[in-house]
Amino acid sequence: MLELRDLSCGYGDITALRSLSLTLDPGKILALIGPNGAGKTSTIMCLAGLVTRHGGEILLAGKDISNLPARARPSLGLAIVPEGRRVFAELTVGENLIVGGHTVDRLALQRNQARIFEYFPRLRERRGQHAGSLSGGEQQMLAIGRALMSDPKILLVDELSLGLMPKMVDECYEVLTQLSAAGVAIMLVEQSTERALSAADHVCVLEAGNVTWQGSATAAHQNKEVIEALLGTNTG
């Protein structure tokens, strides 16, 4: 489904990610973990077309999308839940969803909105409210809902749990699990190694732009000390 070959990206002379190769299949969850500044957000934003690719390829269903502009990617099935949520604060909840579904027709817009209100009933209650006035957890739900409006095949989620109450995080993870069961491929950036390991099928550890460990979640469980050491050396 999604395949990265030697992907590098960065900002001008700064390299944020060096040579990342991985595949992500439908219905699978890949967790991208690493200390602050490891390049996780840069990777996600590069996949969305918002951070400059320095080298390598991004293949979506076998098609090279590396050179497509950001706005052409959602219609191919790529959607993003960005770091810091970044909901359109001055727009209402309903309007945020409409923008999320910018690439789909009117019928799909209705259908997807109804589905999202089922996932997150709170959003239905607050549909006329400005997104900026929502709580952090509600904003995260809205950011997920906005991404789901385009019927994505691949969902990129950056820092889902940051600053949220555990109950809210559970609620969001619950939806991600359902999506993955429905065949959506998910790439997840996560601060909490615990959560990442329990939710993911595949784990990729980044450190200062380099991939330091990659493998299945089962292997990650077995090598937990190794991974924690990798993370610990840079956070501590």
Partner: peptide
């Protein structure tokens, strides 16, 4: 940026 990521030209 996010508008673009939603497919807005």
């Amino acid at each position: 940026e996010i508008a673009q990521a939603c497919g807005v030209n």
